[in-house]
Design a protein around this nucleic acid. Structure first.
Lengths: 352, 352
DNA sequence: GTTAGCACTCTCAAGTCGGGAGTGCTAACT
DNA sequence: AGTTAGCACTCCCGACTTGAGAGTGCTAAC
């Protein structure tokens, strides 16, 4: 596979840019006119033929303009990656929004999803920060009525788990508080393995609660990611490639289905280099339903404490030039927020 | 406006049922054949003419079959409302799912949304239980690092609010716990109005936290509903009336937009009689974008403690026969769960 | 290596057309 | 009086045709 000449590169980029904008196969003549190229359409045609030969372009049918192939997009994106900073004004606007909402993980996630969807005109996903190894931080027991107790557990990474327990017999709030405070003292900062049996003198309630805590911590560790937030599901419907609604439906359905989405993200998590940005184009993602789509993914957070993923799904011809820098910027922002809120000595994931 | 004869009623119901199933204008001849009516198509035609005259049916164009009008659907639904119990087997399946998930409001809401969307093949909404007047129950302060503190507040209805505070100066976990326990003692069970200034001897930290608590409680009261959960956004895309994607997009978009959705629900909350079931057909909802849609809504929870809404959005020709009993059943189920978890003396909302 | 010219291909929108489904009316029947 | 068969009429819808337009690839000249 020979190298592309400089002119071929420029042409390829222009063609893809044009196609992303218009969603129409791009022809040689309109291209020279639109960009005032110092070339004749015939020359462009020749180059197009070469690029088609090499697999970067294809024609939907004889005598139609050219359309980028997955290869083409891949080349385009690799060009894009280096540069592409988000304009300062937009950076400020976004950051401003984050500092305006109530400081709470849930709010931040929702906002991040909203910002991503808005900026990229695609479907966004954000997963809440999640620790690979669960470390206990704090527990709280609140009696609601009779034998029902609300248990709120906070992990070192900031993850919160709530559940409602039914005890064997009614217990006063006072006893619950004492139990919680004992356990807090004993378990603070410990990971699952470090938690052993309780001192002999502890009562049955302590034991029961401890069992539940361990159960819950194991559940947390098994999860591949924190809660999933999405936004912009409808954005993609306006894209012409999804006008035949069945294709769109299948793609959106799998995106709405949390479990599938989690699989998808999980796979990317393992692949993704720390702090790196990943662009999955078309079949690269490996999901049949998303063959026509691309995803821009990034990992954010504080390595070793809590990390999450965020990304955008769009048609293959999504505006990478907008999406990539946005994803990168928001990832940085969330990393900062997580670091400020829970961080400490650990390494924060920063942009490469 | 004269009454409908018995035969006209039967016919109307059959026509609508047929239309709901096929999404095609229904003609006289196919109708008699399909349902083996002891009538000729001509007679049916005559009756159809009458029903059209009365506004229950319309024809898309001369010499096409009949299609129900909003009036028609309204009549149909009013017939439906009385009866319509969900089959026992399905009731069990659903109930089983609820008792299988981890007992946690968030899980229940997600599951409820999922069940509704699945059963009705429509878009579901569920709002978390929300109290009209916020009553303090418990607070917890957890130091994360330096001056950052995670504050978790639980309200009497079970609502939980988290946020991350930045204090003026670092405070030890011990002092935070003492502060929390003092405030818990003082404020337990109180509504906003009942909370006055603290005893003179309390320190600055107590004061600061109290201010934040009040702020947060006010915020909770201002909200019209708890968190919103939706599911099945994509279901509606397979409906033929939304094949021209623009209509679908606008409808879904407004449904995805939380704020609009909240408005919509808020309006219904005020309208809805306690425990009642509400069916909004077409323009009844008052939302331009949902002119082609219907909603089945219900309120659940424990009156005076915490209530929420749940419902299903679908095309006007949605399967009311499936949706109505499902919504009613799930509402009952959630009421039970809320009552078990937090209830007590208050009146639980039950099915009429 | 580049470009003008040209024949060729293929899509897309508009127009045409006939079959079919369904109606409403009338007149006969019960 | 209500019901039904028969029939003319209307209108949609899919299939087909057609012509314009856009774009290509090739060839030959620059």
């Amino acid at each position: 596979m020979t190298e592309l000449t400089e002119r071929q590169k420029t042409l390829l980029v222009l063609i893809i840019r044009e196609y992303i904008e218009t969603a129409q196969p791009v022809g040689s003549k309109p291209l020279v006119e639109r960009y005032r190229l110092d070339l004749s359409s015939a020359t462009v045609r020749n180059e197009m033929a070469v690029l088609t030969e090499m697999g970067y372009l294809r024609q939907p049918h004889t005598s139609a303009g050219r359309v980028p192939t997955e290869e083409g997009y891949r080349f385009f994106v690799s060009q894009m990656m280096q540069q592409a900073e988000l304009p300062e004004s937009i950076q400020h606007t976004i950051a401003h929004q984050f500092y305006q909402v109530r400081p709470d993980i849930d709010q931040w996630m929702t906002l991040a999803a909203s910002v991503l969807a808005h900026q990229s005109q695609g479907v966004s996903v954000v997963t809440a920060p999640h620790a690979e190894t669960a470390r206990f931080k704090h527990i709280e027991l609140i009696s609601t009525q009779g034998r029902q107790v609300l248990m709120v557990m906070v992990m070192a990474g900031g993850e919160v788990s709530q559940q409602i327990l039914t005890l064997a017999e009614p217990v006063s709030q006072e006893r619950l508080s004492q139990c919680a405070s004992r356990l807090n003292g004993l378990l603070s900062g410990l990971a699952i393995e470090a938690i052993s049996v309780l001192p002999a003198r502890s009562d049955a309630l302590d034991q029961d609660i401890l069992t539940l805590i361990l159960q819950d911590m194991r559940r947390m560790e098994q999860r591949v990611s924190g809660n999933i937030y999405t936004d912009g599901l409808t954005n993609v419907l306006s894209e012409p490639e999804f006008s035949d609604s069945d294709e769109a439906r299948r793609a959106l359905r799998m995106f709405e289905e949390r479990s599938t989405l989690q699989d998808l993200l999980a796979r990317s998590v393992t692949n993704s280099a720390v702090g790196g940005l990943q662009v999955l184009i078309g079949s690269e993602g490996g999901w049949e339903e998303l063959r026509q789509c691309s995803m821009v993914l990034a990992r954010y957070g504080v390595q070793g404490l809590a990390t999450g993923m965020l990304g955008v799904l769009g048609p293959m011809r999504m505006s990478y030039a907008r999406t990539i820098p946005t994803v990168r910027f928001v990832a940085g922002l969330l990393s900062d927020l997580v670091n400020d809120a829970m961080g400490g000595e650990q390494d924060e994931i920063r942009n490469p």
